[in-house]
């Protein structure tokens, strides 16, 4: 895992630490939180710890914990870098439900887009999102992501255990303007 700290007005993104595993586990044990994530359910704390250890060893990406202005750990976010094609895949989870609806998702997405285009100098920033996850889609559109298509039945919901459709969204460097 590559290491760096990124900051915006309210948010700090710092490298994931092993001691974050407890919070992560609490989040992924909550159906309401994982309803729209593409990973399977994690059953035991020890499995979440293993997962954190694994991503800390992973070389080609970033895995950040999201800390708000009060120093509270509220979520995590992941970047997967594709150096050949100069593109970055992105995943985000705000796990603390009390912190939902405060615009943190938008702030994190903007901060990362800026990092991807201005610092990493990559050409494309992309993500996948559940078709039903209207709130997240709105956030991504606001930041400038465009709808590119729908991968039918390409994931299994960890809650309903049913196949679900994922929208593909992307934003290109030439489309990126930093909205301050």
């Amino acid at each position: 895992m590559k290491k760096i700290i990124l900051k915006s007005k309210r948010i700090t993104l710092r490298p994931v630490k092993f001691s974050d595993a407890g919070s992560f586990f609490k989040w992924v044990s909550d159906d309401e939180v994982i309803r729209y994530i593409t990973m399977g359910r994690v059953k035991k704390l020890v499995d979440e710890k293993k997962f954190v250890k694994k991503v800390m060893k992973e070389k080609r990406g970033y895995f950040f914990s999201i800390v708000n202005e009060n120093g509270l750990l509220i979520g995590n976010t992941q970047l997967d870098l594709d150096e050949k094609n100069k593109k970055v895949m992105f995943g985000l989870m705000i796990g603390e439900k009390n912190e939902w609806g405060k615009g943190y998702g938008t702030e994190v997405t903007k901060l990362l887009a800026k990092f991807v285009f201005e610092k990493l100098k990559h050409n494309r920033f992309e993500l996948e999102v559940y078709k039903e996850n209207k709130g997240a889609i709105k956030v991504y559109k606001k930041v400038g992501f465009k709808m590119e298509g729908l991968r039918r039945e390409s994931t299994v919901s960890p809650v309903t255990k049913k196949y679900a459709d994922l929208f593909m969204m992307g934003i290109l460097k030439k489309e990126w303007r930093n909205k301050k």
Binding site: K84, N85, K86, K87, N123, R124, E126, K146, E148, G149, L150, R151, R152, S154, M168, G170, L172
Partner: peptide, 24 residues
């Protein structure tokens, strides 16, 4: 055809970004 991911491939042969069509 499910969609077009824009500038998804950097083509080392033609030296340009190419769009990708996702099919299933």
């Amino acid at each position: 055809k499910e969609g077009v991911r824009r500038e998804y491939h950097w083509n080392l042969i033609t030296k340009k970004y190419d769009n990708d069509i996702m099919m299933s």
